Amino acid sequence: MSDQRRPIIIRRKKVVHNHHGGAWKIALADFMTALMALFLVLWILSSSSREELEAVAEYFRTPLTTAIAGGDRTTSSDSAIPGGGPDPAHAEGERARIELRDQSRSAVEQQRLRDRGRAEERRRLRELQRRIEAAIQAHPELRLLRDQMHLDLTQEGLRIQLVDSERRPMFELGSDRVAPYMRELLRTIAPLLNELPNRLSISGHTDSVPYAGGYRGYSNWELSSDRANASRRELVAGGLEADRLLRVAGLADRVPMEDTEPEDAVNRRISLVVLDEWSAEQVLSQGQVAETGEAATRASGDAP
Rank of each mutant, 00 (worst) to 15 (best):
R130C: 07
L240H: 10
D164F: 05
I270L: 13
D302I: 06
E52G: 13
A107K: 08
A237E: 13
V255D: 07
A249Y: 09
M170K: 07
R116H: 01
S201R: 14
E109S: 11
A27E: 00
Q148I: 07
L192V: 05
D3E: 06
N194Q: 01
R247Y: 07
R268C: 00
G71F: 06
V289I: 04
S285M: 02
I8P: 02
E58M: 15
P169Q: 14
A27D: 01
D253I: 04
L45Y: 11
D72C: 07
G213L: 11
A96C: 00
L251N: 12
L284F: 02
R146T: 14
N194D: 03
L196S: 01
S47F: 09
G238H: 09
D264S: 15
E277I: 02
K13Y: 06
A179V: 07
R116V: 07
K14S: 00
M257N: 06
L272Y: 03
V178E: 06
I81P: 00
A212Y: 06
R112G: 12
D302V: 06
P180R: 05
P256T: 13
G301A: 15
R112T: 09
S231K: 10
G239C: 11
A280S: 09
E184V: 03
E121Y: 09
T62K: 11
L245I: 15
R233L: 13
D164G: 04
S285A: 15
E92I: 14
D164Q: 00
R269E: 10
P82D: 11
D78W: 14
E195I: 04
A107N: 02
N198A: 08
T154G: 02
